[in-house]
Simulated assay, not measured.
Amino acid sequence: MTKDDALFHTEVVNEYALDGEAYVKDGLRVLISDPLSQDPGSNPEELFGLAWSTCLNATIQALLKARGVNTRSRVEVVVDYKRESDGRGYYFDLTASAAIEGYDEDQTKKLFTNAHRRCPVSKIIGSYPHVFLNVMPFHS
């Protein structure tokens, strides 16, 4: 099902939960494994981290470009898979850290906060209580 107003459309399939391949129809195939196993493959935590770090950094770059600034940025995401305190479920602690070349801590924090509000993956996260944003120095 596509929407006429979609700028991009993709369809992704997972038939094997954490023990097999997930794939983009007519595209990328990824071996999936349980994050608590030693089996080869990726897992939802890694894939989410890739999606969010890419979206955040792309949004930072778009904001910089709109200001006429051509500089590098870096985003690192940590996804910690944790057990609920009642022992009945799981949740993610999500920490994103950003650095922008030539920007001080306050400038980076302001732009990063703006990027987080605009990033489509961040919008999916919404007001989730286990999200943390940090600023880090830029290193090549």
Score class of each variant (00 low, 15 high):
Asp4Pro: 13
Asp4Ala: 12
Asp4Trp: 08
Asp5Gly: 11
Asp5Ala: 15
Leu7Pro: 05
Leu7Gln: 12
Phe8Tyr: 15
Glu11Val: 10
Val12Pro: 04
Val12Gly: 07
Val13Asp: 03
Asn14Phe: 01
Glu15His: 07
Ala17Gly: 06
Asp19Trp: 08
Asp19Gly: 08
Gly20Cys: 02
Gly20Phe: 04
Ala22His: 03
Val24Thr: 15
Lys25Val: 08
Lys25Asp: 00
Asp26Cys: 01
Leu28Thr: 14
Leu28Asn: 12
Val30Asp: 06
Ile32Lys: 03
Ile32Met: 10
Leu36Met: 13
Leu36Val: 10
Gln38Cys: 10
Gln38Asn: 15
Gln38Val: 14
Asp39Arg: 13
Pro40Ala: 08
Gly41Cys: 03
Glu45Val: 01
Glu46Leu: 13
Glu46Ser: 11
Glu46Ile: 10
Leu47Asn: 05
Leu47Ala: 05
Phe48Ser: 05
Phe48Met: 06
Gly49Tyr: 01
Gly49Ile: 01
Leu50Thr: 12
Leu50Met: 13
Leu50Asp: 11
Ser53Tyr: 11
Thr54Ser: 12
Cys55Trp: 08
Cys55Thr: 09
Leu56Ser: 09
Asn57Trp: 03
Asn57Arg: 02
Asn57Ser: 06
Asn57Thr: 04
Gln61Thr: 12
Gln61Ile: 09
Ala62Glu: 13
Leu63Cys: 03
Leu63Phe: 04
Ala66Val: 13
Val69Tyr: 13
Val69Gly: 09
Thr71Ile: 00
Ser73Gln: 00
Val75Phe: 00
Val77Ile: 11
Val78Ile: 15
Val78Asn: 14
Val79Ile: 15
Arg83Met: 15
Ser85Cys: 07
Gly87Arg: 01
Tyr91Asn: 06
Tyr91Leu: 08
Asp93His: 07
Asp93Cys: 07
Leu94Gln: 11
Thr95Asn: 00
Ala96Leu: 02
Ala99Met: 06
Ala99Val: 06
Ile100Leu: 08
Ile100His: 07
Ile100Thr: 07
Gly102His: 05
Asp104Leu: 05
Glu105Lys: 06
Phe112Lys: 01
Phe112Cys: 05
Thr113Ile: 06
Thr113Cys: 06
Asn114Lys: 10
Asn114Gln: 12
His116Lys: 04
His116Glu: 09
Arg117Gln: 09
Cys119Ala: 12
Pro120Ile: 09
Ser122Thr: 05
Lys123Ser: 05
Ile124Ser: 11
Ile125Glu: 07
Tyr128Gln: 10
Pro129Gly: 01
Pro129His: 03
Pro129Arg: 02
Val131Arg: 09
Phe132Thr: 13
Leu133Tyr: 01
Asn134Asp: 14
Val135Met: 00
Met136Asn: 09
Phe138Lys: 00
Phe138Ser: 02
Ser140Ile: 10
